[in-house]
Structures are given as structure tokens and as C-alpha cells.
Write a protein that binds this DNA or RNA. Structure first.
Length: 498
RNA sequence: GCCCCCAUCGUCUAGUGGCCUAGGACACCACCCUUUCAAGGUGGCGGCACGGGUUCGAAUCCCGUUGGGGGUGCCA
């Protein structure tokens, strides 16, 4: 069955203008990461092959779909680089606008004898199946010659034989037509179902390549029969594996975090998301030699091929996504990073001050959301009447544990104050502290512990001396004194001294 | 139940009969570097589901088993 000889070259029915791909989401409220992945694949192919990416909103389920969902889809696509104003982009088209064509096609099928009406209700079908010991519809009305009437559904007359689906990623997949029931085309109320609408629209829009998730594979033989019955050669099909969760179940919005928007809001970069999504089932060329799977869109677009897509479901691993995100943040141009990170900052935080510390935190972040907590100490109220530093007590305890800590802190304060008019810069601050270390026979790693907790409240953070420099002489010394006082008073009982 | 798909380290993958004593990435561990945390460097752990074939030779081809997934709507 793995006859993967179908080429990615345009198959039959190509019209001028190159191959036509399509992405046909239904507007259900948010954009699924799995949808993003298939959209990206279609986009890569459409652009490289000089074709078109058609966006079609499948909004035929009136029960749930609002105009804003459509805008949400367009925004989400734009976020991952699929721009509506790109020359390869077409749409959005709305399926609901073609309802008449769908119905007309159904009638044509009926006229041709490829479809017939049936007056059984869903319950009737179930009852008969139970009685006959079979599943699904048994073809009860096939030869009853019923005409259209309210309440009657129109069913496709599945022919005998075998239907072979030529899939670009899986090869030839064959289905025994006898296992496919006469499926519904028009509901009892006359409304067309997805299977039909989808095919009619694809034909109408001259789609040459249908690239979608594996869950649609079982629908494909039915759609292929429809294409033929409607007088057209089917398009090239390609079913890529689904994305699964840690339980290996298809990602679902009910139990899994699948909204693209959510990742965006949580500080993930579009480029990282795009790159990661494309590594699910596929590897950018040269990744092995480079020792990295990080690849920009141009590279991906130039190399992506359906034939190279892996066949098994892939686990959407947020940990790996996060690792990619960290890489991308680290590699951002500095000014771009400042701009992106600033969005996460409270309005009253001084942007200029943030820009000073930015280079020192850029390689320490997993997401943009981590920015505020990393630099917050620079924006705490300053001055004599400011609130006391909110120390992380565990860090404080550990930093004040060494018996020399209090004396060392006092020395640091003394030395820093002795700097007088000397520039308050990181290099000076570091050298000054290092001069003191000899007396205590400690290394910088230990020496900086208490000063760090004193000024930032925590045991970890951006490089210390740079932080002191950005914070400024007055506030740094003030916090150092506050800590010394706190240490002094707590040490009082045992009369600890220098 | 029935139909279809799939099966390489924990995860994502490279691999299309000999280059494989199976390579990379993420995660994890250790060490180095070091101003904490990161980053970087080095090393390590860890896999071809099982059983039959075919072949001089199989992770790669065939069959079966087992396991996983998807679909079975008058949803899309």
C-alpha cells in the first residue's frame, strides 16, 4: 500500500496560475494549533509552487459561528505569517454563500440517478440496523423511487467496486465500496451536509490539492466518488498525521491547550511556534549537520514536501515548544526584543530603564511573559519612604547563613560609599567587591549572594553589578542599608559583630 | 463491532537493503566555564514492539501478532 509514487507536481485539472491549495476551517471560536500546522503546510506549498492558498470559512453549521470568529481566524493566520494581502492568498470565501450551488449539485446527482431520496428517520435507520444486525444504513430506499419531499434526506448511491485514494503522504489507500454506506447529501430540511458542500466548493474553486489532517481520510473515498459523479477528476489528496496529547489522543479543545491565541498571549513568539509546528512530522533539511532544528520560514518554505512527512501521530510537546521559544527570544535583534518585551511591562515602568537591563535578560527567558518578574526590582518604589523590599525568605535565610555575611555586607556598603564621585558602573562595582573578597577567602559566587537578596529580594536574577548600575547608586545603597539593619537587628540577641 | 491509518531513544525525528556496533533535536544526568540563574562547551543515559519469512545481507521488503490512533452523524 505504500506506493508513494504520486508526485507533488500538479495533477490533473490544473488551470493557469499554478496549483490551488485550500485551508477550510470552521469558525468555532479559536484557532487550533493543529489547524495552524496544516495551514502552514498549505501555505508553504502554495508559495513555493507559485500557486494559491485559498481560505474558505466553513460556516454552514449555523448553530455556532459568529462573524468575529472569522476575524479571529484571519488574525491568527496573520500572526503565523499567512498574510491576507499576500499575492498567494485568496479569500476568505464563505461556504454559507454557496448553499445554492450545493443544493443544485445534489439535485443534479439525483437527476443522474447517483442519489435517491429516503424517508427513514435517524431512529428508523438505527432500528433497522439493530434488527438486521448491521451498522449504519442498509440502502432501504435505494430502489423505492421516492421523490423529494419535506423530511426526506437525499442519499448518495455508492457504486460497487473499490475506491482507491491516491495520497501524497501515504500512497494508495483503498476502500471496499461495500463498506461504505449510502451517505446523506441533503438533510431532511434540504440543507447540504459537509461532505457535499466541501466537494462542491473545492470543485468550484478549482482546488488541485487537498492537504488536511488524517481524521479526514475516512471521508475521502466518499468525496472522491462525489468528485467523479459530478464529472471531475479528484484533486491530489494528502492526509498528514494528527497532533496528539500525552495520552496519545487527538488534541481536543476540551482537555488540551490548543488555542494558538493562548500561546501568543502567554508570550510565545510566532516564529518559534511556526518552526516547532513544522518539526512535527517533518525535519528541516540540514538540521542534523547544524545540530539544531531551528529553521526560519524561508528555509522551511523552500524545502517542505508532503512526501517527506512522517506517518505517525505526533505529540504536541509544550516543553520543546518552550525550548524553541527560548532560542528565538535569545536570537532576536536587541531592539526588537526591547519592543516585544515592553508590551509585557506595566505602563508605569520606565522603558528607558528596561532597555538598559534588557541585554542582560534576553537569554534567560522562556517566554515574554517572564519579563516583568525578572526585572521588577528595578521598578519598585524607591527612596526613604518606600516600602521595604519584599524578600524571598528562603533566599534571605540562605544568604545570611554564613557567619561572615553580615560583616561582608557592611564592608561592601562601606566600600561603595567610599567610591564617592567615582562612576557607578558595573565594572567598578565588581572590582570593588572583589577587592574585599580576599579578606574573607570567598569567591564572587558566594559573595554576591546577600547583596543580591538585599537589592532584588531574590537569590536569582540578572547579572548583579549590571543590575546595581541600572538601579543607581542611591537606591542600591539604600537597599543595602535596609538589609544590613534587618540583619543587625535579627542578630542582636547573640551580639554578632564584625 | 466494522473500515482505515500507524509502529526507530521518554518525546519529535534521520534512516527508502550493505555507509547503522542506528544519527540529530528536546528533556534528563555529569563535568567544564562562570557573578546567581541562564547561555556556551564536553561527555553520558536511552530506541529499531514481537514472531515468521525474502535476501549473501534487513530498522529498511512481505506476512502475521500485539500495541496505538483515526473514522464510523440528517457535525465540520
Amino acid at each position: 500500500m505504500t506506493d508513494r509514487n504520486a508526485s507533488s507536481a500538479v495533477p490533473n485539472g490544473q488551470r493557469e496560475g499554478g496549483p490551488r491549495f485550500r485551508f477550510a476551517p470552521s469558525p468555532t471560536g479559536f484557532f487550533h494549533v493543529g489547524g495552524a500546522r496544516t495551514a502552514l503546510m498549505n501555505w508553504a506549498l502554495a508559495r513555493r509552487l507559485g500557486g494559491t492558498f485559498v481560505l474558505r470559512i466553513e460556516d454552514t453549521d449555523e448553530a455556532r459561528n459568529k462573524p468575529e470568529w472569522t476575524q479571529g481566524i484571519i488574525d491568527a493566520l496573520a500572526w503565523i505569517g499567512i498574510a491576507a494581502d499576500d499575492e498567494h492568498f485568496e479569500g476568505p470565501h464563505f461556504q454559507s454563500a454557496h448553499a445554492e450551488a450545493h443544493v443544485a449539485a445534489a439535485h443534479r446527482l439525483y437527476e443522474q440517478g447517483d442519489a435517491y431520496y429516503c424517508d427513514l428517520s435517524g431512529q428508523d435507520v438505527q432500528d433497522r440496523a439493530a434488527e438486521l444486525g448491521i451498522t449504519g444504513y442498509d440502502g432501504y430506499s435505494r430502489d423505492r423511487g421516492l421523490g423529494p419531499a419535506p423530511g426526506r434526506v437525499l442519499r448518495f448511491r455508492v457504486p460497487e467496486g473499490t475506491t482507491v485514494v491516491d495520497d501524497l503522504v501515504r500512497g494508495a489507500v483503498s476502500f471496499e465500496n461495500s463498506t461504505i454506506e449510502d451517505f446523506v447529501l441533503l438533510r431532511g430540511n434540504g440543507a447540504p451536509v459537509f461532505l457535499l458542500a466541501n466537494v462542491v466548493d473545492d470543485i468550484e474553486m478549482a482546488i488541485t490539492h487537498v492537504v488536511r489532517a488524517e481524521e479526514h481520510l475516512p471521508n475521502t473515498p466518499k468525496q472522491q466518488m462525489l468528485w467523479r459523479a459530478l464529472g471531475h477528476e479528484p484533486p491530489a489528496w494528502a492526509h498528514v498525521p494528527v497532533l496528539v496529547n500525552e495520552q496519545r489522543k487527538k488534541l481536543s479543545k476540551r482537555r488540551d491547550k490548543v488555542a494558538l491565541e493562548q500561546y501568543r498571549d502567554e508570550g510565545y513568539l510566532a516564529e518559534a511556534m511556526v518552526n516547532y509546528l513544522m518539526t512535527l512530522g517533518w525535519t528541516p533539511p540540514g538540521a542534523e549537520e547544524a545540530g539544531s532544528e531551528i529553521a526560519g520560514w524561508p528555509e522551511i518554505e523552500a524545502a517542505f514536501a508532503l512526501e517527506d512527512v512522517n506517518l505517525s501521530p505526533a505529540f504536541f510537546d509544550v516543553k520543546k515548544l518552550t525550548a524553541f521559544n527560548k532560542q528565538y527570544i535569545k536570537n532576536m535583534p536587541p531592539d526588537e526584543f526591547v519592543a516585544a518585551a515592553s508590551v509585557e511591562l506595566p505602563a508605569d515602568w520606565d522603558r528607558a530603564r528596561f532597555a538598559e537591563i534588557a541585554p542582560h535578560i534576553q537569554e534567560r527567558l522562556e517566554t515574554l511573559k517572564d519579563v516583568p518578574a525578572t526585572v521588577d526590582f528595578l521598578f519598585w518604589p524607591a527612596g526613604a519612604d518606600a516600602e521595604p523590599v519584599d524578600y524571598d525568605e528562603a533566599s534571605w535565610d540562605k544568604a545570611t547563613k554564613p557567619e561572615w555575611s553580615g560583616a561582608f555586607l557592611a564592608d561592601v556598603i562601606g566600600a561603595y560609599e567610599a567610591l564617592g564621585e567615582h562612576p557607578w558602573d558595573a565594572a567598578t562595582l565588581k572590582a570593588t567587591m572583589e577587592d574585599l573578597m580576599g579578606r574573607y577567602e570567598i569567591k564572587l559566587g558566594k559573595a554576591q549572594a546577600l547583596p543580591r537578596v538585599a537589592v532584588t529580594g531574590r537569590a536569582v536574577g540578572p547579572p548583579l553589578f549590571e543590575s546595581f548600575e541600572v538601579l543607581g547608586r542611591d537606591e542600591t545603597l539604600r537597599r543595602l542599608h535596609v538589609a544590613a539593619d534587618r540583619l543587625g537587628s535579627s542578630a542582636q540577641p547573640t551580639g554578632a559583630g564584625g
